[in-house]
């Protein structure tokens, strides 16, 4: 099936005082229409930069982004403005992502004004109220200010704003990590319902393994700027074909009391990918490291049907 979004060899380098930071280093994936790709990893792995680069909120260093076959990175400013009504983003922080000087209706209505989607005030108001209903925001909040509302309701405003232009693709950048669990469940359900109703395609970025499992069809695991493993969600949790994914999953505090045995946990800490050496980036922490791991970049290949891994020993883990 033709993917709605395809990312090829995306790179974003930042030049810092210490060297070149390879925030996103050769990332490729495709997302079929109507499905969700979960992008998971720890802080500093480049998942947020990937999301922003696709929308060109950050200009990527190189690579290609194809949205419905159109080259996003070559779009002129006016083409980009048009594209942005089809590609939207929902932010992590429900506090800083809403302008504190604007009311709920102004925030949700702004995109409609920018893209002239309403002929008059009346139509604008009707459309805003429809959107509010869609995200289950009470009608009486029409004129309220964001600071009067809790995190969950604020996140609903962010979702309504993203939906206002009828996009087909939405980058969800940690949309629930600032929320309490009971509210998190409400928002996750809402996002799933909207996907079903409107046929949306999501790139779902998160650090939370249980959330990403719940939301995604396919999951890509990032480590220091690269995707190390990609697989269908269920399959990934059954068996991991990369030692980092294994470590990530075994580090989750399970709901089972005393579930953790005394086995070894992953040693060491994440470094940052500044002027990385050739070889696997996980090698310094890897419990299964071999000499060849540090000699050359491991290829990201299909190790089993539908499963991709960048570990040279992936076949042994099947």
């Amino acid at each position: 099936m033709e993917p709605l979004l395809e990312v090829r060899h995306l790179k974003k380098y930042f030049h810092t005082g210490y060297g070149t930071l390879h925030a996103v280093d050769d990332v490729s994936f495709r997302i079929p229409k109507g499905s969700t790709l979960g992008l998971v990893g720890e802080s500093g792995c480049g998942k947020t930069t990937t999301g922003r680069s696709i929308l060109r909120l950050i200009e990527p260093t190189s690579g290609e982004v194809l949205f419905k076959g159109r080259k996003v990175l070559d779009a002129t400013p006016s083409e980009l403005r048009a594209l942005r009504s089809e590609m939207q983003i929902i932010f992590q922080d429900p506090y800083s992502s809403l302008n504190p000087r604007m009311t709920v209706s102004q925030i949700i209505g702004e995109p409609l004004l920018i893209h002239r989607r309403a002929r008059d005030k009346k139509e604008l108001e009707r459309k805003v109220r429809d959107l509010m209903e869609k995200v289950e925001l009470a009608d009486r909040l029409y004129g309220a200010y964001p600071h009067e509302l809790d995190g969950g309701r604020r996140q609903r405003i962010g979702i309504a704003r993203a939906l206002s232009l009828h996009p087909q693709f939405i980058v969800c950048d940690e949309p629930v990590s600032a929320l309490d669990v009971s509210v998190q469940a409400q928002i996750l359900n809402l996002l799933k319902d909207l996907q079903e109703e409107l046929g949306l395609t999501y790139l779902f970025i998160t650090h939370d393994m249980s959330v990403v499992k719940h939301m995604s069809d396919t999951i890509a695991v990032m480590y220091l700027g690269q995707i190390v493993e990609m697989a269908p969600a269920e399959a990934l949790f059954e068996k991991q074909l990369h030692p980092y994914t294994q470590a990530l999953i075994s580090a989750i505090p399970l709901l089972e009391p005393g579930g953790w045995k005394d086995e070894e946990v992953l040693k060491g800490e994440l470094s940052s990918p500044i002027d990385p050496q050739p070889g696997c980036r996980f090698a310094p922490r890897c419990p299964m490291v071999k000499s060849q791991c540090t000699e050359q970049d491991p290829p990201f290949v299909e190790s089993a049907k539908g499963r991709f891994s960048s570990c040279v020993r992936a076949k042994e883990m099947i």
Binding site: R153, S182, A185, Q186, N189, S210, H214, E234, F237, L254
Partner: peptide, 24 residues
């Protein structure tokens, strides 16, 4: 009960999470 039910589980597949309606 509601708190446990709203956490996405790793050990089973759920179509929807059961959430606690309303607000704190």
């Amino acid at each position: 009960e509601g708190l446990f039910a709203s956490i996405p589980r790793l050990d089973r597949t759920q179509k929807r999470l059961s959430s606690i309606p309303g607000l704190i």
